[in-house]
């Protein structure tokens, strides 16, 4: 059970959160301008590193705010304050 640092509510149990996958993958400003391969990359392909990983969380059972956090996927340590 991770202890996740919500920027609004402070550290809370993992059960209060939902996971949003990799952070910093912006919705393309003009999807129609992308090739099929580029669009497929945006929709389906994400990094899955062992080690530091910028990811999105939402405090579903709390303030309901989305935030970004960097977690070490091998140790679960949260590396920087969001």
């Amino acid at each position: 059970m991770l202890l996740i640092p919500c920027p609004w509510c402070g550290p809370r149990d993992e059960v209060e959160f939902s996971y949003g996958g990799a952070a910093d993958v912006a919705y393309p400003p003009d999807p129609d301008a992308l090739s099929d391969a580029e669009w497929g990359e945006y929709v389906f392909v994400r990094d899955n590193p062992r080690g530091p990983f910028a990811e999105r969380w939402v405090h579903t059972a709390g303030c309901r705010r989305w935030f970004r956090a960097v977690r070490d996927t091998a140790t679960h340590e949260f590396l920087e304050a969001p």
């Binding site: 939902s18 949003g20 912006a26 919705y27 999105r56 939402v58 579903t60 309901r64 705010r65 989305w66």
Partner: peptide, 11 residues
């Protein structure tokens, strides 16, 4: 509702 909030807040 979660879907709405996600797009509103993150995009």
């Amino acid at each position: 509702l979660d879907h709405f909030e996600e797009w509103l807040q993150t995009e």
